[in-house]
């Protein structure tokens, strides 16, 4: 069992470590800039968002092996659905919560 796996994904340990380090860096950057108030609020929001999207791509490539599947059509369908749902969560919440700026 174990041997089969390492043959299937040669060098996967290396890619896991790279992915892990990249994820940590991409988490530290937004934390650092927010704790230090490095930029204005609006720019901070954009920095967090960009880091989140990069994190998302790294997860897909390094941990979910998006490029290695035998049946890519399932993958594409799942990612399309995932993006629709993420869009609903993020854009929907932002839109709904704009009422807060009108109230305050």
């Amino acid at each position: 069992m174990h041997d089969d796996h390492s043959e299937k994904h040669p060098g996967s340990t290396v890619s896991y470590v790279i992915g892990f380090l990249l994820s940590i860096v991409l988490t530290i950057i937004p934390l650092y800039v927010v704790l230090n108030h490095s930029f204005s609020n609006m720019i901070l929001v954009y920095v967090i968002m960009i880091m989140a999207v990069l994190q998302f791509l790294i997860q897909l490539v390094f941990f979910m092996h998006i490029r290695e599947s035998e049946e890519p059509h399932y993958n594409i369908l799942a990612i399309a659905l995932g993006i629709i749902f993420v869009f609903a969560i993020v854009a929907g919440s932002a839109w709904i919560m704009t009422f807060n700026s009108q109230v305050q």
Binding site: L81, I84, F85, A88, G92, W95, I96, M97, T98, F99, Q102, V103
Partner: peptide
């Protein structure tokens, strides 16, 4: 199953999110 994701605000219409939402 997909559409279920786009109706959640009807649980708090009275929050006052505005007519468009």
């Amino acid at each position: 199953s997909v559409y279920a994701y786009f109706t959640w605000v009807h649980h708090f219409f009275t929050m006052g999110a505005g007519a468009d939402v």
